[in-house]
Design a protein around this nucleic acid. Structure first.
Lengths: 329, 329
DNA sequence: TTGTAGGCGTTATCAT
DNA sequence: ATGATAACGCCTACAA
């Protein structure tokens, strides 16, 4: 444990004042070339690292972002957040920020945590995931002028705050088109109940694609809560109709997995596509729409740092997903 | 957005000195009952929160732990870390600590990050996951007296530092015993190559159980890298032998998934068990050994906080996994 | 371009 | 039991 290396140690070593060292760190352009080099050398030689606590106390900024980590619901969708989180940490790191985790049991609890975090750690910003209609969290943050970005559009008013999202409609449209190209005509959709922004968006992609092909009439649509069992049930009912579909686009891998089970029992092959390209999909060969999570995370960091530096960045980013073709479609 | 509430604000409000407020916070017992109550009231009334940066500068402690988030390798095993991380964040929270994330591309890079983090944020401790033989990271931390806990035993010397782990051998033993009870006699094992602590441990559980049943001769054992394709190949080779196994215990869900594919083509039903109870296992009905990840995370935090408070806690915790029975065995 | 003098909010030390 | 004072490491004035 070498004794602590402070800005003073560096100054002494480089035979300049502490202020000059600070300048080299925070405003390199105002320091003479040669002096700067000498200071830089001292910094690396001594292994100096700016103490964030001291810096934060003076500047009020912590170079820290906070992200909520969710309780891994059914575990299938959990991996999406997991991948996003990794991308976020990596990009933030590169931008000189670190990511702090927190948990919350609901919106109110999360808002209380905002308060806590802001008071105790002077957090620079938040990255929220999974926003929904009339989200109280974004309102709270916006009202206090706390910088934040959401991964997921604000469905009520797209202009209300910076966000990054993946174009779900484009994803399902792609999947639907692919089935169309393969000769399918009766293509069903199994989605979530109306009212969730994400679910409605994905359904719209399928619906418009079918309509564009003049196939509205051949497009049975079901809605259910997420889950494998639910997917299986809906698909069975679909198959039991007079004119059963030959393909189905599902709003999630969970539902697609269930549909796949129902389909396995039938003689006629039915094509199935899912959404999110989760590990499960990869493992069982399910064709699925893949979100560019690392890119999304990167853009979130970009937006947030831009906000903090007062740089004007386009605050709304919509990324395109890609269809990963496997055995099931 | 109200003006900042500091210890001075509270002191004024409660008509005491700043020091008394500090005492109420850090050494309540030395403050008179009535004074303490008055200060507490002021604290809640004003919504005061101790500023961590200032506290840290004075005490040198940050109430921050760091954990590495991995690049979600094949995604199947990634979910294990994900669940662990969530448990960690929750327990740390309850203990008044927060979790900071970092990434690293290798051991050396990770050590460099330790240095960074320690210098910049005065981190209180690290939680390492997935230790292996002769881990340079633990050596580095230990040498500098940095508090840390590993999730995973140090295989070379169990006494060298505090750890929490799950008894892998007990898990595979349980799985094997269950197959024995079901009447199986020829039970194979598909594992990882010798040399990984975790893999060898899990193999040992199977081997000793078979030996105890006097079935050493009926216990074909294969080793391969992790992966679905690898599992399928090994299982096919196993099935092609003169006296093929009627059941197989796999060291991971990935391998089990592959084995399952090989087995689906055969006429004779072959029982398969995996390890980690990943979402994939749940989705396809694979019997698997489940690790108590939330509990493990909790014990990690317990050990670490104990270390920091100088409390003597048993520094070695071995938890038992449970077998989750599903369709495949 | 470089040096000097506060002060950020907290806690430890020492008086009272 | 309580209060005054110094110090943690850094950055932002201002002076040289």
């Amino acid at each position: 444990m070498a004794e602590k290396v402070t800005i003073a140690t560096v100054a002494r070593h480089a035979r300049v004042s502490r202020q000059t060292v600070s300048n080299v760190l925070n405003a390199p352009h105002i320091v003479r070339e040669e002096t700067r080099r000498r200071v830089q050398e001292a910094i690396t030689a001594l292994g100096y690292r700016a103490n964030q606590a001291a810096r934060q106390m003076r500047t009020g900024r912590s170079r820290l972002f906070a992200v909520r980590i969710e309780p891994t619901r059914d575990g299938i969708n959990g991996s999406v957040l997991d991948r996003f989180l990794h991308g976020l940490t990596e990009t933030a790191d590169a931008a000189g920020y670190r990511v702090m985790l927190y948990t919350a049991t609901g919106d109110d609890d999360e808002i209380a945590t905002f308060d806590d975090l802001l008071g105790a750690y002077d957090l620079d910003g938040f990255v929220l995931t999974g926003t929904d209609h009339g989200d109280p969290r974004t309102a709270w943050l916006a009202q206090r002028g706390v910088p934040f970005v959401t991964f997921g559009r604000p469905w009520d008013d797209p202009e209300s705050h910076p966000w990054v999202d993946v174009d779900g409609a484009a994803g399902t449209a792609q999947a639907t088109q692919r089935l169309l190209d393969a000769g399918h005509r009766r293509i069903a959709f199994i989605g979530w109940p109306e009212g969730s922004g994400v679910g409605d968006d994905r359904r719209a992609g399928w619906r418009t694609t079918m309509a564009a092909a003049g196939l509205d009439g051949a497009a049975p649509c079901r809605a259910t809560e997420d889950g494998i069992a639910q997917g299986e049930r809906e698909m069975r009912e679909l198959l039991a109709t007079d004119d059963p579909p030959t393909a189905v686009v599902c709003v999630s891998d969970s539902l697609a997995l269930g549909a796949l089970r129902a389909v396995r029992d039938t003689a006629v092959p039915v094509a199935v596509t899912g959404f999110d390209d989760t590990p499960v999909a990869a493992a069982i060969g399910l064709t699925s729409v893949s979100q560019p999570l690392a890119a999304a995370a990167g853009r979130c960091v970009e937006l947030l740092t831009g906000l903090l530096d007062g740089q004007p960045t386009d605050p709304h980013v919509l990324l395109s997903p890609t269809l990963v073709l496997r055995h099931t479609a």
